[in-house]
Each structure stands twice: as structure tokens, then as C-alpha cells.
């Protein structure tokens, strides 16, 4: 019995050491680097900064290039909010009818959309499509692309969630003569809330951090988004690692806030989704 307790304690310590080394040290390293002078950061050492410049580095990064960081964060926020709202409404409408009717057409519709989960988007033809529609290099164009790319995932989540909402609810409302749209917005959408949280968190973090999309479809200095600030930092300031890491910290704040805000619902929602398959 005593031996067991010791093994357990040793096990606990071992797990802590492994977790700490593998998952926490990289983040401490980012924070240390972001707090140094550029000369000290160039040494790449894992050491306490001689001078603690964390906040001045952050503000330097934010002010850099006429506050383009502010512009990038705003662009990324507009892009994220716009696409997520579209994804949720369009996918929920779709999933609502697909799950309730569950006929041949519904099966075909689902199959078409779900193919989007696997097929890689065709980038150059999409660039030319946006060009010919006159929405290349616009946030609107990028929002439409993101909506199309993230709908398949949301439809799958919503369709699964719909199976848990009793049919009687909407059938009763139909009997009362409510219109389909009204039923959707006042009965179905509120009941989908847990699934909506899952979609909001996973999709918004992905879109906020998306690098490839803006790289192809949203070039140009005024269109800069959060991850692209890092990318241009590499080429312009290959030596100022302190600012580069401060930049990493700045653009991580928003996803972190989203996550902390929804953490509990997210993990249980994702695990619930996995259970239902």
C-alpha cells in the first residue's frame, strides 16, 4: 500500500515535469524573449531579461508602422465576426431543414456540403473568381470565402444537435400557424445554443488566426490581418526578435480571451459532439 502511494506520487511528479517541459517552457520562452532588448534577444537564450521591457516592446509593436497593428486587429475582428455570423445563420437554416425532412434531397444536400470538409479549396481559380466579381482584396470577398469554407463543419455540428431537439416543439408551432422563419429564429436557434458556442469558438479562433486565406485573397497593406503582421515582421526586422515575440503576444490576446470566455462550454461541447459521432 505504502509502495503504491510512493509510485503514485512519483508518477504525479513525472507527469508534471513532462507537461511543464513540453507545453509550458515554449510559452515562458516567448514571454522572456518579448521582454528583452533586441541585442539580448538576438542571443536566443532562455534567461531572465536584464531589463524588463515587456510593456515597452508591446507598445512599440502596436505603434509600429502608424499603428498598423490596430488596423490588423480590426480587420481580423471584422472578418471573424462577419464570417461567423454568416456561417451560423446559413448553416443552422440548412441543418434545420436537412435534419427534419431527412429525405432524398436532404441526403444529397448534406453530401454536397460535407465534401467541403475534405476537399482542399482551389486557390488560384478562387482568386480569379473574386477578381471577376470585383471583390478581390476586399474584406467582403474574404468573408464570403470563409463562410463557404467553414459552413460544412458547422452544418455537421448543427445537424447532430438538431436530433436532440424534439420535433413536437416545431410541429406545435406550425400547428399554431407560425411561419418557418419565425419558428427558426424563435424556437430552433435558441435551442441550438450549445452547438452554436462550439461553432463560434472553434471557427472564430481558426478564422482569426487564418494565414493562408488572407495571403491569397486579401493582399495589400491596408488589408493586413493579425497573423500577417508577424509575417511581414520577419522580412522587415529579421534581427529584432524581441519585437517579433512581442507581436506574437499581442495577436494571441484575442483568441485567448475568446477561449477563456467559452472554455467550459467548448470542451464539454466538443466532447459531446465526439460522443454522438
Amino acid at each position: 500500500m505504502k509502495k503504491n502511494a510512493i509510485t503514485l506520487k512519483l508518477g504525479n511528479i513525472l507527469v508534471f515535469i513532462v507537461m511543464f517541459t513540453v507545453f509550458i517552457i515554449p510559452f515562458i520562452y516567448i514571454l522572456l524573449m518579448a521582454s528583452k532588448t533586441s541585442q539580448e534577444a538576438a542571443l536566443l537564450r532562455f534567461s531572465l531579461p536584464e531589463e524588463f521591457l515587456f510593456f515597452s516592446n508591446m507598445s512599440e509593436v502596436i505603434a509600429f508602422g502608424e499603428y498598423r497593428m490596430i488596423r490588423a486587429l480590426m480587420n481580423s475582428t471584422v472578418l471573424t465576426v462577419g464570417s461567423v455570423i454568416l456561417v451560423i445563420i446559413l448553416s443552422a437554416l440548412f441543418a434545420f431543414v436537412a435534419q427534419r425532412r431527412n429525405d432524398k434531397l436532404a441526403t444529397i444536400m448534406m453530401a454536397v456540403l460535407v465534401a467541403g470538409l475534405m476537399i482542399p479549396p482551389a486557390v488560384v481559380p478562387t482568386v480569379f473568381l473574386l477578381r471577376s466579381l470585383g471583390i478581390y482584396k476586399t474584406l467582403f470577398g474574404m468573408i464570403m470565402i470563409d463562410a463557404a469554407l467553414f459552413m460544412p463543419f458547422a452544418v455537421v455540428i448543427f445537424r447532430t444537435a438538431m436530433t436532440a431537439i424534439p420535433r413536437d416543439l416545431d410541429e406545435a408551432s406550425f400547428m399554431d400557424g407560425a411561419s418557418p422563419l419565425r419558428i427558426f429564429f424563435s424556437v430552433i436557434l435558441p435551442l441550438l445554443k450549445p452547438a452554436i458556442v462550439t461553432v463560434v469558438v472553434t471557427t472564430s479562433v481558426k478564422i482569426f488566426n487564418d494565414f493562408v486565406g488572407p495571403l491569397y485573397f486579401l493582399p495589400g497593406a491596408k488589408n493586413i490581418t493579425a497573423p500577417l503582421t508577424l509575417y511581414s515582421f520577419i522580412s522587415q526586422f529579421s534581427t529584432q526578435w524581441n519585437l517579433l515575440f512581442a507581436n506574437v503576444v499581442v495577436i494571441t490576446i484575442i483568441p485567448l480571451v475568446i477561449f477563456i470566455f467559452f472554455q467550459r462550454q467548448l470542451v464539454s461541447g466538443m466532447m459531446g459532439g465526439a460522443v454522438k459521432g
Binding site: L86, I89, L90, S91, L93, F94, M109, V112, L113, G116, P121, T126, L129, M144, I145, A147, A148, L149, M151, P152, V155
Partner: peptide, 10 residues
């Protein structure tokens, strides 16, 4: 709305 968006942009 979903299928048109998906159809055009994907």
C-alpha cells in the same frame, strides 16, 4: 443561402 454561397465560392 448556404448552398448558393457554397456553390459560388467553393
Amino acid at each position: 443561402p448556404a448552398i448558393i454561397t457554397f456553390g459560388i465560392f467553393f
